[in-house]
Design a protein around this nucleic acid. Sequence first.
DNA 1: CGCCACTTTGAAACAGTTCAACGTCAGTGG
DNA 2: CCACTGACGTTGAACTGTTTCAAAGTGGCG
Lengths: 251, 251
Amino acid sequence: MDRQQDYWLATGVEALLKRLDWRDHLAQEEREALRAAAGPVRYFAAGQPMAGQHASPKSSLLLASGMAARHNMLEMGEQQITAFHILGDFVDLHSLLLSRLDHGVSAVTDVVAVEFPHDKLLEITERLPHLTRMLWLSTIMDGAIHRQWLVAMGRMPALSHMAHLFCEHFVRARVVGLVQNDDSFPFDITQSALADALGLSTVHVNRVVQELRRRHLLEWEKGVATILDWKTLQRVGQFDDTYLDLERQQR
Amino acid sequence: MDRQQDYWLATGVEALLKRLDWRDHLAQEEREALRAAAGPVRYFAAGQPMAGQHASPKSSLLLASGMAARHNMLEMGEQQITAFHILGDFVDLHSLLLSRLDHGVSAVTDVVAVEFPHDKLLEITERLPHLTRMLWLSTIMDGAIHRQWLVAMGRMPALSHMAHLFCEHFVRARVVGLVQNDDSFPFDITQSALADALGLSTVHVNRVVQELRRRHLLEWEKGVATILDWKTLQRVGQFDDTYLDLERQQR
DNA sequence: CGCCACTTTGAAACAGTTCAACGTCAGTGG
DNA sequence: CCACTGACGTTGAACTGTTTCAAAGTGGCG
């Protein structure tokens, strides 16, 4: 009914199609099937939960605007963010097959998301093998990103780790068309959320961000990050984007 | 031809079936399809590479014996292990859809693995949607484990982190029937490999292992780990196995 | 028997944390 | 329109978990 809803629905789905299309061509029938599977549009204010830890969602959420995070709470009230999601990402596609979520999802900024009811997605898996593989690939990419985070967390100093994360987000933003002037993209999160993702204290995150700025690798203010020196940033973060697997080929 | 080969092939595939069957019932036809997709058996000596970083394997490897690790090399010669695999695990099922591997795989102990040619697996995805979902689930479980590693790495001290890892391996070993006396399982890796998985130095790993032993939570010698105090170990590692999603239900 | 890979120990150095305070800015209400 | 509030960012200083370096101990194996 809403013109508004239609707009967000199209925005989200088109970004998803664009993201998948980087990896393999989608047939018209597959595009239609995805559009048809898209359910209602939902809005979340910054900070709001989008799905609770241990919940068993009946649908998966595709981001049409804003940024969301998967996070796990620890006993001492600390939390670890295990993934950030932007336009065109499913925040919890894996909940399609998981009986319960092993993490919470929350809106980092104001968020608009498109629901994909699980029964419709399951119907796709019954009928469209290639599209199913592309959705599967989508969760596999999540895993590849997790692995890079593990590498960065386990074996890199804070500066490299943060550099890596900015590199990752630059490339991901570019894929769905969120990069402006070839160097800047929306990154509207608090330093404390960033700390929860990097496994650092907010204090240290602050110092490391300053170091990146001091070295003229990066600007980051008012929710927009700007890459000033891609080559050096990439070297510092030991960032090699082959893991994002952007080659277009049959899958 | 070999009786030996047949033995390993059956061992690997049955462990896989057992592992999947914990999550959902597999039909006879699906079991047959998996057995039929299993290709040649391969042997790797401890330390040998099973797949190179950036390789594009034409088949995926299922472990029938031993332990394997996924690892990424960094510039300074350090490495980070991002996953351990045991009996019944695919070490690189995601390579089915990835154009190139973002990590290397190597044998930690002597390993026997069963090859599943990608064309046969793809054929399964064309024909058997439910089995496809179960294989998909398999890669999703990898992702869930990655996330717990991230949480442990980012927000836990070394002792908890290590405790968590032992808890995880205990449960995983139990699922495929590798646990003896309800408390011990094969864990035949060097402290230095463990360090590469935890993101610690070997020296510190050594001290932390000693602390776990001193607290009578764990024994670990000659490649066998024995849980002495499950409850405490679980508490120390903040280990909650719901993320391993062992509920049997339709997927 | 001697080698080599692995484990253990001690001491010094360091990256990152913690604690505590202060700065800054946008929003809110009086 | 200004004072107040609360969330976020910044700074300094002390502290600590983990690393690094260096050396010695252990055990299986050719």
